[in-house]
Design a protein around this nucleic acid. Structure first.
Length: 591
RNA sequence: GGUUCGGUAGCUCAGCUGGAUAGAGCAUCAGCCUUCUAAGCUGAGGGUCAUUGGUUCGAAUCCAAUCCGGAUCACCA
């Protein structure tokens, strides 16, 4: 049980004994005591005045005395200031916490709870390479999965590859028109970038054709539909759904180039999946479900054969689920996938990590699943995250302002290299060790940067200013860890029983922080919010830094103090490491 | 226009289930390396918490209105 929970329980017990209840933990707040006051935790009394019929000072005094009398082993003292009851916890409580847990590398993690959760993330289109927005998605999804695991869930990471559809055909058409047989191999280019280039070429040509038609007197809206390259693309999609051999061959070939590129990127950034789904498989089931839904009367068919669902009663609109030419739209395959996921994994929660631009889409998906009576419908949860924007606004591929994922990773690793060389602390490292260190630091900086912000909120990334290595950053936490490890290479903690020694302020501030780690994991997982962990880990690192610049570990005042501080060092290192692990960030032993 | 999310220091962000004098980091300025790694530590300046009204003993936090910005409302994905 956490300290806060123990406090709540103790306070409720004493309130019930002193006054006429009933009382519950929700009746009052327990806060960490502010620096400027004496105490560890504070009970805010105002909300209890009415029920107890007391004034704040009397209530605080009575409650404080009762708590101290009832649990003298736990409480060390109290003071009342205005409406706040500040309580101090006995030093030996903190020291026991340390002795019991300092060597546990699973501190803060929970037992299996039997729940099965799927986290779908990444979900790329196979027509262009990954960009900065995908990185936020990948880091978020991976981290959320880790946090849920730490809370005892069995987690399955999944990825839906949007490998078919009109957008893929665009790259294919452009390749047919302009490539003259070039491949990633002949161009010495990463496959996803190679295919992405043709997606850009499509749009250039499309724009050119529209202009040409408009100049010949056609309305712009008509020209957009009549442009030959667009018509050819639509033809190709039809052929694709019909299984045309030539089209399928080209599709397989180009997708394989993209997969090769993606795999390289995923490997680099540490994204992995327990299951990869392909839209080219799931869309057929979607179509089947649409057919069944028509029979059930959930969907309705227009005279032109297109199929719709009417969600106006739910405050939304009419939504198309199948085009008049019989081809499926984006949401069709999602319906199929929702069913497949449940059938294969019998999951209790079905989390989708998808940008907030798709809030409406996900609302529709959930509603459709519910109306169809899919078994998993109510468990669909959209983890909606904000877009990553540039100082100039949204990233726009047309304006060439998209920050490419591979480029950014390479830049971060190069920056890590530059900093490391300037500092010159690891000159004895081998080439391999150096390369590994640069990746650890570069990726650590980038992941931390993208995860330290509340996922729900959009965030701004300034490519002009490279991601920092100082302050509230990944490398700051990594550096703290490396320095602790440096101490622990010279001095080891022993298991002997320690005499209790009075805790210094800076020692206790670390212990208070360490004690909160389990609660922090739970909160982060409940909110599906890695920034909670990032903020925590930063504060813990800061507390340790402040502590050990003032107090020596190796040359502590007494043998007891030395052991106490070594244990503090061990436990802080452990917690920093497992906290960062939840963010997908590795820790260097030296840097 | 409908729906929806947001507006906190020069910049990027915490704080939002109401509680003590609104916090970090960056940037700026002033200090600290013969002593466990200075990617560090200590300190200073910097705020009409978009605006107005309401609820409350108490509001950055809750409610309403207004202003500003984003997303979305495709036979695109």
């Amino acid at each position: 049980m956490s300290i806060v929970e123990s406090l709540q329980e103790a306070v409720v017990k004493q309130l019930t004994a002193l006054y006429t209840g009933p009382f519950a933990a929700a009746d009052f707040q327990v806060n960490q005591t502010k620096e400027e006051f004496e105490g560890d935790y504070t009970i805010v009394l105002f909300s209890l005045l009415k029920k107890t019929g007391k004034n704040p000072v009397d209530l605080g005094q009575q409650l404080g005395e009762a708590l101290l009398a009832a649990e003298p082993d736990f409480f060390n003292g109290f003071n009342v200031i205005k409406g706040f009851l500040n309580l101090s916890i006995q030093d030996h409580y903190w020291q026991k916490l340390l002795s019991d847990n300092y060597e546990k590398d699973d501190f803060g993690k929970q037992q299996a709870n039997g729940k099965r959760v799927m986290v779908e993330y990444s979900s790329p289109n196979t027509n262009k390479p990954l960009h900065l927005g995908h990185l936020r998605n990948n880091f978020l999804g991976w981290s959320v999965a880790e946090m849920l695991k730490a809370c005892g869930n069995e987690v399955f990471k999944s990825c839906i590859v949007n490998d078919r559809g009109i957008h893929i055909c665009k790259s294919m058409i452009a390749w047919q028109m302009f490539a003259e047989g070039e491949t990633p191999a002949t161009q010495q280019e990463k496959g996803d970038h190679f295919v992405g280039d043709y997606y850009v070429k499509f749009n250039d040509e499309y724009k050119r054709q529209i202009e040409e038609l408009v100049q010949d007197g056609m309305e712009k809206a008509v020209a957009e539909k009549e442009a030959p390259i667009m018509k050819a693309t639509q033809q190709m999609l039809l052929k694709w759904e019909a299984g045309d051999g030539e089209v399928m061959d080209l599709w397989r070939r180009m997708n394989s180039w993209v997969y090769e590129g993606f795999n390289e990127t995923y490997k680099k950034i540490g994204s992995d999946f327990d299951k990869t789904y392909y839209e080219s498989n799931t869309y057929l089931l979607g179509k089947k479900i649409v057919e069944e839904g028509l029979g059930k009367g959930v969907f309705e068919q227009e005279a032109d054969n297109s199929v719709w669902i009417d969600l106006t009663a739910d405050g939304l609109d009419r939504k198309i689920v199948q085009r008049r030419d019989g081809t499926s739209v984006y949401i069709t395959q999602d319906i199929g996938l929702a069913q497949v996921k449940y059938e294969e994994y019998k999951i209790d929660r079905n989390i989708y990590v998808i940008g907030d631009e798709q809030n409406y889409h996900m609302k529709v998906l959930r509603l459709i699943a519910q109306k169809l009576g899919l078994p998993n419908a109510d468990n669909i949860y959209h983890l909606s995250y904000g877009m990553v924007e540039l100082p100039s606004g949204k990233m726009k591929s047309r304006e060439g302002t998209v920050v490419d994922a591979d480029d950014l990773v390479a830049e971060m690793v190069a920056t890590a290299k530059q900093h490391t060389e300037e500092l010159g602390k690891v000159k004895d490292f081998t080439e391999d060790e150096l390369a590994h260190l640069y990746e650890t630091l570069g990726l650590g900086a980038m992941k931390f940067y993208l995860l330290r912000v509340d996922p729900k909120k959009k965030m701004v990334f300034n490519p002009q200013e490279s991601i920092d290595f100082h302050g509230f950053t990944g490398p700051f936490v990594q550096y703290t860890y490396a320095r602790i490890k440096s101490i622990l290479r010279k001095e080891a903690a022993t298991n002997e029983t320690l005499e209790s020694t009075p805790l210094l302020r800076l020692e206790k501030s670390i212990l208070v922080s360490l004690e909160q780690f389990p609660a922090v994991i739970q909160q982060a997982a409940a909110e599906l919010n890695p920034s909670v962990i990032a903020i925590y880990v930063f504060n813990l690192a800061k507390a340790f830094n402040s502590f050990y610049t003032v107090h020596s570990v190796a040359n502590a005042e007494t043998a007891e103090k030395k052991q106490l501080r070594l244990r503090l060092a061990v436990m802080t290192a452990n917690v920093l490491k497992s906290g960062m692990q939840l963010l997908g960030i590795q820790m260097p032993e030296r840097m």
